[in-house]
């Protein structure tokens, strides 16, 4: 089962909830909640990954990830321009007497390679980030992607992270999604069984929660909400969830102590063990909702 943790708005506590959920499942590894043992946590916020700061995995492997970009053999190229014609992203252009490639614009679709009538295009992988794999506390399998600074495209890194880091049979997967509601989030969340939305009870929180809920609907996913920093704003988020039929599975009140501990890189379960039963309940609720949806 794959649980995606997203929010719409940044800074609501996705990583706090995702890491706590992972720790809870690991502590209950072997039980009905997590029969295949500790879960796999994938930090899909490849622009600004943070989960590793809390779970502190020992890294077992690091490897580059990239986009296959065209390389044109000048000897065989007739400058017919077909490659530039088919490229939807202007990554190829006929300028002067030859073809110029602009690798930063290339999406790696392979269309030019297929279209070249002379067959003189080969593809070379251009690295845009790295993937890392490791094991964290309590046997949690951990993976994340990190987009290289200056690179625009997060989606290919997220795609490869999910493709290359596979769960053991029956292992639960938790995906910590990036903020926002556009393609990086969709890439992270696609294929999941449940969308857990972490929000805050403020106007910004509510506005972005609505958008995240629409993503959930577009992907046909069962959803639940966690209201973090409860008490700082008003009750419009709770009323929205009620009206939309989105179960509020946990409310974490704002406490300066929790904020401090998180600031110091400590997980919620570590510093506030009284949350352990509440996360067990959360996991149970999610499982039940997913079973129900099936």
């Amino acid at each position: 089962m794959r649980i995606a943790v997203a929010s719409g708005k940044g800074g609501t506590g996705k990583t706090t909830v995702a890491t706590s959920l992972a720790l809870c499942l690991a502590a209950n590894g072997g039980s009905a909640l997590s029969p295949a043992g500790p879960p796999l946590l994938l930090d899909c916020d490849v622009e600004a990954p943070n989960a590793h700061l809390f779970l502190r995995p020992s890294w077992e492997a690091v490897w580059p990830v990239g986009i296959p970009v065209p390389q044109i053999d000048p000897a065989g190229c007739t400058a017919c321009g077909r490659c530039a014609e088919v490229c939807a992203f202007n990554a190829l252009a006929i300028l002067g007497s030859g073809v110029q490639v602009f690798p930063e614009l290339c999406h790696g679709c392979g269309s030019c390679t297929l279209a070249c009538p002379e067959g003189v295009i080969t593809e070379v992988v251009r690295p845009i980030g790295v993937l890392r794999r490791g094991t964290a506390q309590q046997g949690i399998d951990f993976g994340h992607g990190e987009l290289s600074i200056g690179e625009p495209m997060a989606v290919p890194v997220i795609r490869e992270l999910k493709r290359q880091l596979n769960a053991r049979p029956g292992q639960l997967v938790i995906l910590d999604a990036p903020p926002g509601t556009s393609c990086p989030v969709v890439e992270a969340v696609r294929g999941s069984d449940f969308l857990l939305l972490v929000t805050e009870p403020t106007p910004f929180g509510l506005h972005d929660l609505r958008l995240a809920v629409e993503v959930g609907h577009a992907l046909g996913l069962p959803m639940g909400a966690v209201i973090n920093r409860d008490g700082i704003g008003d009750d419009s988020v709770i009323r929205f969830c009620e009206n939309e039929g989105i179960p509020v599975l946990m409310r974490i009140p704002f406490e300066r102590a929790i904020a401090r501990d998180s600031a110091l890189g400590r997980t919620l379960l570590e510093t506030h063990p009284e949350y352990a039963p509440r996360f067990r309940e959360l996991a149970g609720d999610i499982l039940r909702q997913v079973e129900g949806a099936r």
Binding site: G10, G11, E47, A48, L147, I149, G150, E151, P152, M153, A154, P178, P179, G180, P184, S262, A263, L264
Partner: peptide, 24 residues
Amino acid sequence: PGIGCPVISAATGADLALVVTEPT
């Protein structure tokens, strides 16, 4: 938020970037 394409498009050509951070 982030550092990818939307941020790059928002920032390039700006005369000044003000980065808001927090002590965490």
